[in-house]
Amino acid sequence: MKMTDIDIKSLIKNRKKTDLQTMISMFLIKFFTYSIVAVLFLILGKIVYEGSAVINRQFLTSAPQNNMTEGGIGPAIFGTLVVVFLMILFAVPVGIFAAIYMSEYAKDNVFNRILRVTVNNLAGVPSIVFGLFGLGFFVLFIGRGYDSIFGAGLFLGKPAMLWASATLAILVLPTIIVSSIEALRAVPRNQRIASLGLGASKWQTIKNVVLPQARPGILTGVILSISRGAGETAPLLFLGCAFFLPQLPVGYLDLGLFSIPMINPAEQFMYLSYHIFILATQSTNPTITMPIQYGTTMVLISIVILLNLTAVIFRYKFRQTMNEIKRV
């Protein structure tokens, strides 16, 4: 009894045919993959080549001079660091606590499912929309509201670092929440059972067992979202990003006998990504500023790549711990 009509000869024929198909598809797959990598390296290579020529200590610390055609990008680095720092301060606690609630406490009902879908969708909203939201909600509603209630003149009711970082925080919040939920869920059930079985309460279990194990996973998400926030430009257009500021957004806090310098979050700021944008499109002579653009880009990309590398290391550690637990 023959099962099929295929005999050995037809197999040989088919094999040749498959070989050709495989070769073509393999070639295409490799070609596209390598082209992407090649494009990436072309861009990076060009930036590093041009950028490293201008980057030195003075470039990193001094302010732009001579109508932006000379000088450094110190204020833009400063502004980026401060805004990102404030963003972390706003986004990380909120994001992690929201994730703990949604993964550990929220019951599986319609409301919570809608909540989850909403958070996921929020991650897909274009960043310019977040910018407009920040302008409307933070600057005009909260800021102006504060000013008119407390008669503070024009104190918080204007685009400023505070609102830029708050808006960026909301922008990166969904990413933090989603990745944190995933990290929390990856902690095996038997670990929670072990802790509860030892008479730990639910919160003690989360705090002492689940969170420490999920920490590298959570950090991965946090760092990736920070690097996203650091590279963001569009929402900052409305939120106090300045073309050029003669002074750093630092105010002096008067304490009577003496005063201490304090970063003033109610001030405008300069930002690396926005700096690239204005040098390339808004400045008087984009050609002359080319070297500065390359230098700025290299600094920005270095920050982002550095953050992503840290994230990779944390993710590696996280996977290792999880595998260790599961191997038992």
């Binding site: 038997n190 059972i193 072990a194 079985g197 260790e324």
Partner: peptide, 19 residues
């Protein structure tokens, strides 16, 4: 319940030590 589980300890089928 939390205190009950301090009174009634449990050893599970597969070891579930913390890492």
């Amino acid at each position: 319940v939390v205190n009950l589980r301090r009174l009634v300890g449990m050893v599970f089928q597969s070891s579930n030590l913390f890492p």
